[in-house]
Structure formats: structure tokens, C-alpha cells
Amino acid sequence: MTKPTPEEAIHLRDLFEDIVGAAWFNRNAMTERELLILILERHRDSGGDIEKLKDGCVATARERFSRLR
């Protein structure tokens, strides 16, 4: 995995914070860790498309970590 640029790291941090701050997110240490792994893996495969990354991560996080099931 390549290291994100400083600008990409800011986008990744913001995406993480947006998702964990969502009302539907079942926040605990395990789901936060799994979300971070998800974001980093998706970032590697996104080709730098931040909107595609965000859409994919939010959709997957809703499926996996939603407390509103």
C-alpha cells in the first residue's frame, strides 16, 4: 500500500470522522477500527477519486456498521 499524500490523508480523516459521527453508525472501538481498515483498503483501490471513495465507503459502512438494521 502506498502512503497517502498529506492532502489525501486529510480527506481520509474527514471521511472517517463524517462516518463515525453519523447518527446511524454503531460507534465502538471495533467498528471504528474496521471502518478505518475499510477506508484505507478502498483508498488503495480508488485511483484517487475521492467522491467514488466516499460513496463506496458510506454504502459499505451503512451495510456493516449501522445500528438501524
Rank of each mutant, 00 (worst) to 15 (best):
M1D: 05
G21K: 07
G48F: 02
S46K: 12
P4C: 04
K52F: 08
F25S: 10
R33M: 14
E63Y: 12
P6Y: 00
L36Q: 10
D45H: 07
E63I: 07
R44D: 10
F65M: 05
E34V: 02
D45T: 04
L38N: 03
A22I: 06
A23K: 15
I50W: 05
R27W: 00
E8H: 02
E41V: 01
K3M: 06
A22G: 15
I19N: 13
K52I: 03
E41Q: 08
P6I: 00
P6D: 01
K52R: 15
P4K: 02
E32I: 05
H43M: 05
G47I: 00
L15H: 13
G21Y: 10
E32R: 13
T31H: 11
P6K: 00
E32S: 13
R44M: 01
V58Y: 12
I50F: 09
R69E: 14
N26F: 09
E7W: 00
T5F: 00
I10W: 02
A22V: 03
E41T: 06
W24D: 15
L53I: 01
V58A: 13
T5M: 03
R64G: 04
K54N: 05
R13P: 06
E51T: 13
D45G: 03
E7S: 00
H11E: 12
P6V: 00
E34N: 09
V20E: 10
T60M: 13
A59R: 15
V20G: 09
H43Q: 07
H11I: 03
W24H: 14
L36R: 07
D45E: 09
I37Q: 09
L40M: 13
W24V: 13
M1I: 02
L15R: 10
K52L: 12
G21I: 04
R64A: 14
R13F: 08
R44I: 00
D18L: 08
F25R: 14
V20F: 06
N28V: 00
E32V: 04
L68H: 14
H11F: 10
I39S: 02
D14C: 03
K3F: 11
A22T: 06
F65K: 04
R42T: 09
D55R: 15
T5Q: 01
R27Y: 02
G47D: 02
I37D: 15
K52T: 09
H43L: 05
K54A: 05
S66D: 07
G21V: 05
I37N: 09
